[in-house]
């Protein structure tokens, strides 16, 4: 994870500059590295063993998001330093790699899915297990990716319910995951 390039404000420790909401839940073994700013919104849950890497661009995560263990958020190689934005109510499942520029509200990124560099995901998208979104790709709202690169538009109109479910899940996870916010401040 060490970058050979010179960075302007390189802190010696892997600790990165962060803006953490007071109601954030973050597991003890989560890893926040990099030199750009990492912003995490309120009521968001970061599972243990999640990796957020802001070495190449800032990361902004909204409210009510769930970021699961072993997922990797942030650019893994140099690109535009525009940064990535994850909007409210996004669920990132185990082992997903997210390098997108933005991810719309209520999207679900399932197990081991991969979102390429600078991709733009619309609202309420669902990226199935092991599916990939290419670099610079723009995925419209309500798209579902599944199987071997198949896609469809899901306009079943239950997105408000789904957001509510994510909120409930956050409530439960708040009780289950020992919070270690102080360690990352």
């Amino acid at each position: 994870m060490s970058s050979s390039k010179r960075v302007s404000t390189a802190p010696a420790a892997p600790k990165s500059p962060t803006v953490l909401a007071p109601t954030l839940v973050i597991g003890e073994h989560a890893v926040l590295t990099g030199t750009y700013l990492i912003t995490l919104g309120s009521n968001t849950v970061v599972h243990p063993r999640t990796k957020l890497n802001s070495t190449y661009a800032p990361i902004t995560i909204g409210n009510n998001c769930i970021i699961s263990e072993r997922s990797i958020i942030g650019l893994q190689s140099p690109g535009s330093d525009q940064g990535m934005t994850i909007e409210n109510g996004v669920v990132v499942e185990v082992g997903a790699i997210v390098e997108a520029k933005s991810i719309g509200e209520g999207s679900i990124i399932e197990v081991n899915a991969k979102i390429g560099k600078h991709a733009v995901l619309g609202k309420h998208c669902k990226i199935g297990p092991m599916c990939e979104v290419g670099e610079h790709e723009i995925v419209p709202d309500f798209t579902v990716l599944f199987g071997n690169g198949m896609r469809r538009i899901d306009r079943s109109g239950v997105e408000d319910l789904k957001l509510k479910m994510v909120a409930r899940q956050v409530e439960i996870l708040r009780k289950l995951i020992p919070n270690n916010l102080a360690k990352f401040k």
């Binding site: 479910m165 409930r168 899940q169 409530e171 439960i172 289950l176």
Partner: peptide, 8 residues
């Protein structure tokens, strides 16, 4: 979700 509450 089961009966309005989330549980593992």
């Amino acid at each position: 979700m089961y009966k309005g509450t989330f549980s593992h």
